[in-house]
Simulated scan of single mutants.
Amino acid sequence: MRDKRKKFVELAEARVNRAIKDVRLIGNLANKNSYDYTDDDARKIFRALQKEIEAAKARFMGDAGGRDSDFRLED
């Protein structure tokens, strides 16, 4: 049982730190001097991120739920 805990901690720390880094990189996209985006684009980004956070949280609470396809701003 201890090995499962150790593996969980190891993977959780690595994955959460990677996610935090990636969220910070998404924040860098807010630089209007480098990028052109609309308020609607920003809303879509944060709606998609929030949806995935909620789905991950639900899985920890015992609700497996389904998975959607990859995020796309434009079709």
Rank of each mutant, 00 (worst) to 15 (best):
M1W: 07
M1N: 09
R2P: 05
R2A: 14
R2H: 11
R2S: 13
D3A: 14
D3L: 12
K4N: 09
R5I: 11
K6E: 14
K6W: 06
K6M: 10
K7A: 14
V9H: 02
V9L: 10
V9Q: 05
V9C: 03
E10H: 08
E10A: 10
E10N: 09
L11R: 10
L11S: 09
L11F: 04
A12N: 01
A12I: 00
A12D: 01
E13R: 09
E13C: 06
R15A: 01
R15T: 02
V16S: 07
V16N: 04
N17T: 08
N17S: 12
N17P: 00
A19S: 12
I20R: 13
K21M: 04
K21W: 04
D22E: 10
D22Y: 04
V23E: 07
V23G: 03
R24A: 05
R24M: 07
R24H: 03
R24K: 07
L25Q: 11
L25T: 04
G27H: 06
L29H: 08
A30K: 13
A30F: 12
A30S: 14
N31Q: 08
N31T: 05
N31V: 04
N31Y: 07
S34I: 06
Y35N: 15
Y35F: 15
D36Y: 07
Y37T: 03
D39V: 11
D40V: 12
D40Y: 09
D40R: 12
D41W: 00
A42R: 14
A42E: 13
R43E: 14
R43G: 04
K44I: 07
I45M: 15
I45T: 15
F46P: 01
R47M: 10
R47L: 11
Q50K: 15
Q50R: 14
Q50G: 13
E52T: 04
E52Q: 15
E52R: 15
E52K: 12
E52S: 12
I53P: 01
E54M: 11
A55P: 02
A56V: 10
A56H: 03
K57F: 09
R59A: 01
M61Q: 15
M61W: 05
M61V: 06
G62L: 02
G62K: 01
G62P: 02
G62M: 02
A64I: 10
G65I: 01
G65F: 02
G65C: 04
R67K: 13
D68I: 03
D68Q: 10
D68M: 05
S69Y: 06
D70S: 13
D70Y: 11
R72H: 01
R72A: 00
E74D: 04
D75E: 15
D75V: 11
D75G: 14
D75Q: 13
